[in-house]
């Protein structure tokens, strides 16, 4: 149904048309005042407010049923960007570990994001997406790596973990933890923040690896995620 050619709405219809926006709060001041004056003069129209709230609830529930993109979608996007534009950082200009960490961490600590109260959720979800792609292997699609990652992991012997650091962890705290554990970041960040961390020059037993993962996870102020690298 199109809305072209409809008869001119009556003055009361004009006001009633604004009620959805009055309820959502996405209405300008002049229109809000018009609606409020009208509601004062026509209290029976207040019933429409409840109807609109029902409709909002229904619309929200339907939207939730639609789900979300599959895990790995962000990785695919970043891979597409890399394919279109080339590596993020030329190998010859690859930054140091500290630079890589500090380049990543300010995003988590952005005042704007903190004010919005979503930074951690956004980035942990983003981490989870990549974790799904790298560890779970669910989507089977291309996996994103930054230019500075390529080839490094193949030549690294020993035992490696995939680690995501807490959104609030500082570079200094991460460096201290790595030093304490005699661990070394060998690549990353991959996709949305996973680092590959070598925790021993030797191949540790499964029990030792589990213990190392538990130790890292116990430092939840610094480590958001840890798992054995595949």
């Amino acid at each position: 149904m199109t809305d072209d050619g409809l008869k001119t709405p009556s003055p009361s219809e004009e006001i009633e048309m604004l009620i959805p926006w009055y309820v959502t709060g996405r209405i300008d001041d002049a229109d809000r005042e018009r609606v409020e004056r009208y509601l004062e003069d026509h209290p029976e129209v207040r019933d429409q407010l409840a109807l609109v709230r029902e409709e909002i609830a229904g619309s929200g529930a339907l939207a939730e049923e639609l789900g979300a993109p599959r895990a790995g979608a962000l990785g695919r996007l970043l891979a597409d960007i890399e394919a279109a534009d080339g590596p993020a950082i030329a190998r010859a200009q690859a930054p140091s570990l500290t630079e890589r960490l500090t380049a990543w961490l300010p995003v988590f600590n952005s005042p704007a994001l903190q004010m919005a109260g979503i930074a951690a959720a956004v980035l942990i979800v983003a981490q989870a997406v990549v974790i799904g792609a790298l560890v779970g292997g669910r989507d089977g699609g291309a996996q994103y790596e930054t230019a500075s990652d390529g080839g490094e992991t193949i030549a690294q012997p020993g035992t490696r973990l995939l680690v995501a650091f807490s959104p609030t962890a500082t570079a200094k705290a991460i460096t201290a933890l790595l030093s304490e554990k005699d661990a070394t970041i060998v690549s990353g960040p991959k996709g949305s923040g996973l680092f590959e961390v070598r925790i021993s020059d030797k191949q540790l037993s499964e029990a030792e690896i589990e213990r190392a993962i538990s130790d890292l996870k116990a430092r939840s102020d610094i480590v958001a995620f840890a798992a054995k690298a595949q």
Binding site: A68, P69, V107, A121, A126
Partner: peptide
Amino acid sequence: AKDRVAVEVLYGRYNVRLYRFILR
């Protein structure tokens, strides 16, 4: 300015909403 971290953050903010809008 080709800041890839920024696109990741924007993605985090919008991907679900856009996906649902498009899927509809």
